[in-house]
Structure formats: C-alpha cells, structure tokens
Design a protein around this nucleic acid. Structure first.
Length: 797
DNA sequence: GCTTCAGAACGCGAGTCAAT
DNA sequence: ATTGACTCGCGTTCTGAAGC
C-alpha cells in the first residue's frame, strides 16, 4: 500500500506505520501495491471504545487514530482472520488496469482470482478451506501490519471507515460494504450499550472526581478477584496490574489536588504557611534567580503570568489544559512582582561578581601555579552613562607553556603548507583537541558584530542606466508634476553632471582603494597568524567554523611588536596604489589621473602618520616585550633581537625589570646564544604569557551591541539591567552546570543590597551612610559607580 | 503564653524618562 | 507630545525576639 489522501494530506501509509519497535528494513514505499497472502475472514466486527481488544488491534488502532485524528469509536472495523496462506512471492495487484486503488477494500481484477488459485494449486499450498470459487476482493493494509499477520503476530486487521459526507467522489477511508458482502441493512452496527458513549463535544474534564471514581471502580473490581481466592501466597497477574493502576491513579489524584499543588508551589517560592496566599514570607533564592532569568526573556517582567498561561495552552493536550490553567490561576499569587524582579537584578548581578571572585581565587596563587589573565576593555556611553565593559580570559599558569608550544607548532604546520591542506588539517585537528582540553575557562560569549566600512557605490548599473532624458520624461508626462520638475531642474542638471563625469568616478575609486587598505588592516589585526588569508575548504563548514573560532584570533600583539604591522601597512599601500593606477580608466584626462593618485598618496600619508603615532609605542619596551612571543619559522632571529633590545633597555617597567633578574637573565643569555627555548623553563613561561594577549577590542565591542540589543526596548533602566544583559548568558550556563549550588550560595549571602555591598567589600564606602534601609537605591550606586574610593581604597578581593 | 516592637521584604501606585 | 516599561518611595504584612 502506498499513499493515502486524507483531508488533503498525502500520507505514506506504509512508512508511517513503521514504528521504532519494528526493525527498519528498507521499504521503498513507491513500489506498486502487492498481494501477499490469501486470507479467510471469519467475521467483521465494529470497533467501539468499550471493546476489549488484543494488543495487535490496539497497535493498529493507535496508528489509524494518529492518521485520522479521531477516536474511531464506531468508525473502525475489525477483520478477524481465520486462515492465512502466504504467497510464495508477492504479486502485483494490478496486472492490467491503470487506475490505482483508493479504498481499503477493493475488487480484484476478474482474471487475477482464478490465476492465483491456479498458482496455489501448482505450488502445493492450497488448503481445504479455500473452496472452489476464486477470491474476488482485496483487503489493503499497511505493509508492516501485513507482515505481522503473515508471521502470526496479528490475528486481525483493523481498518477505519469514515463515511463519505459528500455524495460525490471517493474517499480512501470509506468502506465499500457491497464488496464486503453486506447489504445496507446488515452492516455491523454499534451495540446498544456502546452507542451512548460520550463524544468529544460533551465536556470531559479531567478532575479529581473522575479520578476518584476510577479508583473506586478499580478497587471494586479488585475486590471481586480477591473473593475467589483465599490462598496466603496469592499471586495474580491481573491483581498486580490492578494495583499498579490504582497506584498511578492515586498519584495523579494527589498531583491534581489543588492543595498539593499549592504545597509544591509554596516549597518552591518559600512563601507562607497553611494560609499561604495571605502569607508573605520571603521567596526562595533559587526560585527568584530562575524568575529573573526568565523575565529577561520577556518584553516585560509583568507579563510572566500571561506567558505561562499561553505556553501551557500551546503545549498541553486539551484534557489537561483546564486543570492546569486553574493551577496557574492559583499560582498567580506566587509569581514575583515585577518590581521585585527589578530589584533582584542587582542582587543577581552582584552575586555573580562574588561567584566570579570565588572561582578566580580558587586557582592557587604562586609563581609556578596561578593563572595568567588577559584583559580586554572598552568603554562606551549608553543611556547617558559611561559603561565600561571588561572581559577577562584566564589561562592556568601550568598550561600556558603547553599552549604556547601548541600555538607554535600550529604556526609551523601552516607555514610548511604549500598547496595541500589535508595533512595540516589533520595535525591541526589533533592540536585543537589538545587546546580544548587545556584551555582554562574563558569569559567570553559575545558575537562579533560587523560594522563595515562600505562606502563603495556600485558604479556600473548607475552609470549604465542613468539617463537625464528618461528621468525628466517620466515626470514630464504628468502635467501636475511639471512645475515641480522645473523647479528641481538645476539640481537634476547638477546630479546629471556629477554622474556622467569620469572625474567623480575616478575619485570614488581612489577613495575605495584607500578604504581597502583600512579594511585589510582590520582583517589582519582581527585574524589569527595561522589562518590569515587562507581559504577554508568549502566542502567542510566545520573547518571554517573552527578557523573562525581560532584561539589566536585577535591576539596579534606579538606580531605588532615585531613591526609586522607596519610591514603589512606598507605592502597594502603599495599594492593598492598600483591597483588604483591600473584601474583608472585610460580615457581619463592626465591631470585628473594625477590628482587621484595624489589624493591617494595624501590619504596614505595621513593613515601612516596616524598609525605610527598610535602604534609606535609597541616597538619600544615595555610593550616590545610582547614581541618575545612572536614565532615565525622564516625569521628565527627576530625573537632574539627583541629579547636583546628588551634586556638592554633602561625601562623601569616591572616586567622588564623581572627579565633582568637572576634566573631569567641567565636563561635569556643562553637563548640568545642559540639554546632551544623548550629547555629554558622560566624563560618559556615568561615568553608564553605574552602570546595570548588581545590586540583588538572587537570582542568587547560586541558586548555593547549585545547590551543595546537586549535593553534598547527598556526605558528608565538601571545599571544592573545593563550589566545583567551581558552576564545573563553566563549565569544561565552556570544554572545548568554543576556550580549552581555555589552560585546560589553567593546569592544567599547577598540577599539584600546592603549585604551585597558588604560582601563586595564596599561596606565602608561613605555613601552607605546615606542609606535609610537595606534596600536603599544608594547601594546600587555604590556598586556600579567608579569613584576613586571604590576603585582603589578597599581591600583587594 | 501573650503582647509589643523593630526590622525585613515584598506589593502598590505614582512618577520618570528614553523611545517613538 | 505621547507612551508605557521600569523604578522609587511608601505602606503593609510577616518574623523573631524581647518584655511583661
């Protein structure tokens, strides 16, 4: 059996009928329908909801219920099978005709019956019950079900019969009773006791009364079983099953009981005692944390109740909706008020600070252990506030050398690649796995936002299709607009002149080339040294993603310090100048060409000047130290140069001074003499710690965008709202990790702003004296305000 | 064992202020 | 100018403990 149309849906019946329990042998559903067996139908019974049916029928019933979406009470028929003779090999149903069967009971082609009988005879499969008259009808069923009949699992076939309401047309699910051998009178009908079965329209509500009755019935029935037997070691399968049913119903009953629900809600919220709705105990911390995170998903915290209701409406089946909505109704008393949520944002944010401090201090301090931290900061104005976003990445000190070596070998790998990427990719994969194991938790979850520098006007179409006549003609057609077109005449002329002038386009080209330099510089700074300008294989998106997420991305300070940045700048300028020279059209006047080239040269000069002004500091100690971590197999001496310059400098920066200390100094001299870095323990650590510093703040800038995206719809927002916008994704991650309890403890010790401030070590801040109570807004200002007192005059965390 | 009191913690309604 | 989500100040209710 192949397809079936029901309510304008095409359903592949045989495919649908396969469930996971069947072994999924390959069924090509587009095969023609086939005859599998000769069967003898003992009886045809009508199905109704009170009928007890064996498991095989239940399975088929469920299937057809899913297809039709009806309960099939009185609308399905059971074909009890008495004898089955499987054919040696299945035969196509249609040998001659082209029309496909739609109905589930269909006439056989007149020639087929005798021929099948003949085949049976010759194969010796014929049995006594078959008789002389050849079969004339086929019964169609999903192939998996037929197979179950063949191997004896099913002893009956259940088929739906949905009478065709429309007079015309044929329906695949309507039984042809004449074919089954019935007249219109003696079609099996529902027995009297089943005809009163309540239909879907009569409101069947799942409530405690129903459950109570069901339990009573079950108990009464169980009692009748018990009266028959008096044995002490009585063990009846049916009775045990009944016990299980009663148990399930009782648990359901308990769950449906409003007071039980109230109790669980009370435990969750921590509110109240016996008269819980009138009581006002504090909420449980865990509950409020969840509520705040949930409220952040919504447009406004006040709509939480509504959202819960409609979510229940979407998900729950109809029977459960009414009781569940009632439960939520009672729950309205315990969804926190929006002002509560607003206040708790501060606590959540503060608690996360505490939590971060705790995790950061968990790494033991010391020279050999501890963590190396890289900061990335960016400030911007939002909502009239100066907002500083700092991102910290920590690498365990014990891992940093390993990471450095990994990074170096990654660079070596890619440097050695000529044109075949495959082996390098393999090595890279292994290295990446290593990195993933070793990398300490990083604090970043921001998306990069693309703010391009696109000033490129697409020249060709505009120039090709522009025509002043056409433009004027279009408006000149309408007399009413003639006046207007004459008024704007001079301006149109002006625009026309601009668009048609080659000088305009030439200057635009010069500008574009200048911006290409800037764009490419950004590309370079934001890329990683390993994959820069390398085309990711197009057939594997996973590799592309991995390259984009390369840990070395944006960490190019070592290269910058070695002067590579200015190399790149010069190279880009030269290349683009040459390209500009070539791309300027030949038709251009000589003086204009010179002017464009001059413009470009001016721009280049300005760029170089500005960048030199800003970046030259990287070429001198102490920032030159970053150059130590530079690794380029082509220029192995660069590192030594840098080291020598750092050691001979007079810079007073602590890190430079550290380099001059005993151990490091000795090892540095050894290194300059040609010793392998891997053998110089201290120096390698010192060097490696510079490798992973960020050179761009793009990642942080993404955070601002995130804040804006999240909070742009919110007015009158506090600092906590903004801050939480950034931290929420991490808080959510913690909530689903094993650190929940630690985090919740942090929230618990900082249950009010006052406690939070003292936990953060700001309790002695002078502003705190202004507070009138524990929830005074002044505490929030204390937490977020960056005044010198709170910045420098407190105990370090 | 009952009352009283202070403080904690939440809800209410008015006010605020950035976005539209 | 309007709007409406968010915040603020204040009132209400509950808790725990001292006082009687």
């Amino acid at each position: 059996m192949h397809t079936l149309s029901f309510q304008k849906h095409r359903i592949l019946i045989s495919v649908e009928a396969e469930s996971d329990t069947d072994d999924l042998e390959a069924h090509s559903s587009d095969e023609a329908a086939q005859i599998w067996a000769l069967v003898c139908i003992k009886a045809i019974r009508v199905y109704h909801s009170m009928l007890q049916v064996p498991a095989g029928i239940k399975r088929q019933l469920k299937f057809w219920q899913q297809i039709t979406g009806k309960s099939l009470h009185g609308e399905a028929f059971i074909f009890d099978i008495e004898h089955v003779i499987p054919l040696a090999c299945p035969v196509d149903v249609q040998q001659f005709g082209a029309s496909r069967f739609r109905s589930l009971v269909a006439p056989l082609e007149p020639e087929q019956g005798p021929r099948l009988l003949g085949n049976l005879e010759s194969e010796g499969l014929r049995q006594d019950w078959v008789g002389e008259s050849p079969p004339s009808r086929v019964l169609r069923a999903p192939r998996p079900f037929i197979q179950k009949v063949l191997n004896g699992t099913f002893s009956a076939i259940l088929l739906p019969h949905l009478p065709n309401k429309k007079r015309s047309g044929s329906s695949g699910l309507t039984m042809n009773w004449q074919l089954c051998g019935f007249t219109s009178e003696d079609v099996p009908v529902l027995p009297g006791h089943a005809s009163t079965f309540p239909d879907a329209d009569s409101n069947l509500v799942l409530d405690t009364n129903v459950l109570d009755e069901a339990i009573d019935f079950l108990q009464a029935y169980a009692a009748t079983i018990l009266t028959d037997v008096e044995d002490a070691d009585f063990e009846n399968v049916e009775y045990l099953a009944l016990q299980r049913c009663v148990g399930v119903f009782q648990r359901l009953l308990q769950g449906m009981d409003p007071s039980a629900f109230v109790r669980s809600a009370r435990e969750m919220t921590g509110k109240g005692n016996a008269f819980w709705y009138s009581s006002r105990r504090p909420y449980q911390v865990a509950f409020l944390v969840k509520a705040v995170t949930m409220a952040n998903l919504l447009r406004t915290a006040g709509s939480m109740q509504e959202v819960l209701q409609s979510a229940a409406g979407i998900l729950l089946p109809e029977v459960l909706q009414a009781p569940f909505k009632h439960m939520l109704e009672t729950c309205r008393h315990c969804t926190p008020h929006e002002s509560t949520i607003s206040r708790w944002k501060l606590l959540l944010d503060g608690a996360f600070m505490l939590f971060q401090r705790r995790t950061n201090t968990e790494i033991p301090r010391g020279s050999g252990s501890g963590a190396i931290r890289y900061l990335m900061a960016d400030a911007s104005t939002q909502h009239g506030r100066d907002f500083e976003h700092i991102m910290v990445a920590s690498v365990k000190a014990s891992d940093v050398c390993l990471l450095f070596r990994t990074a170096c070998s990654l660079l070596d790998t890619w440097h050695a690649v000529e044109d075949d990427d495959a082996p390098a990719l393999q090595i890279e994969e292994e290295l990446m796995v290593k990195v993933e194991c070793q990398d300490a938790p990083e604090l970043d979850a921001d998306h990069l936002q693309d703010d391009g520098f696109d000033v490129v006007v697409d020249e060709a179409p505009l120039e090709r299709f522009w025509s002043l006549q056409a433009f004027n003609h279009g408006s000149g057609q309408k007399p009413a607009q003639q006046q207007a077109s004459e008024e704007s005449g001079p301006r149109l002329e002006y625009i026309n002149e601009t668009i048609e002038s080659p000088e305009f386009w030439a200057q635009l080209l010069a500008l574009d080339k200048l911006f290409t330099v800037v764009r490419d510089l950004f590309d370079w700074v934001e890329s990683c040294p390993c994959h820069y300008k390398r085309q990711a294989p197009t057939d594997n998106p996973a590799i592309k993603r991995r390259w984009q997420a390369c840990p070395l991305r944006g960490r190019r300070l070592p290269e910058i310090s070695c002067g590579r940045f200015f190399d790149i700048l010069n190279r880009l300028c030269l290349a683009n100048a040459a390209r500009l020279f070539l791309e300027l059209p030949d038709s251009l006047a000589e003086d204009c060409r010179a002017a464009c080239l001059l413009d470009f040269e001016h721009g280049r000069g300005h760029l170089t000047f500005q960048l030199t002004l800003k970046m030259a500091c990287f070429l001198e100690p102490p920032l030159l130290l970053f150059g130590l971590a530079h690794h380029d197999p082509e220029m192995p001496d660069l590192q030594k140069d840098v080291l020598q310059r750092c050691m001979s400098s007079q810079c007073q920066h602590p890190l430079v001074q550290k380099l001059k200390e005993q151990k490091l100094h000795e090892e540095a001299e050894l290194f300059i003499e040609g010793e392998d870095l891997k053998l110089l323990e201290n120096l390698e650590f010192f060097t490696a710690s510079f490798r992973f510093a960020w050179g761009t703040e793009r990642k942080v800038e993404g955070g601002h965008a995130q804040v804006n995206m999240y909070a742009s719809g919110r007015r009158n927002r506090t600092e906590a709202t903004d801050s939480l916008a950034l931290r929420l994704s991490e808080i959510k991650r913690i909530l689903s990790s094993s650190d929940v309890t630690a985090f919740l403890e942090c929230v618990q010790v900082a249950r009010s702003p006052q406690k939070l401030v003292s936990q953060l070590g700001l309790a002695r801040h002078p502003s705190c004296r202004l507070a009138k109570n524990g929830w005074d807004p002044i505490y929030r200002k204390t937490v977020y305000h960056a005044d010198p007192l709170s910045l420098y005059n407190r105990d370090p965390p």
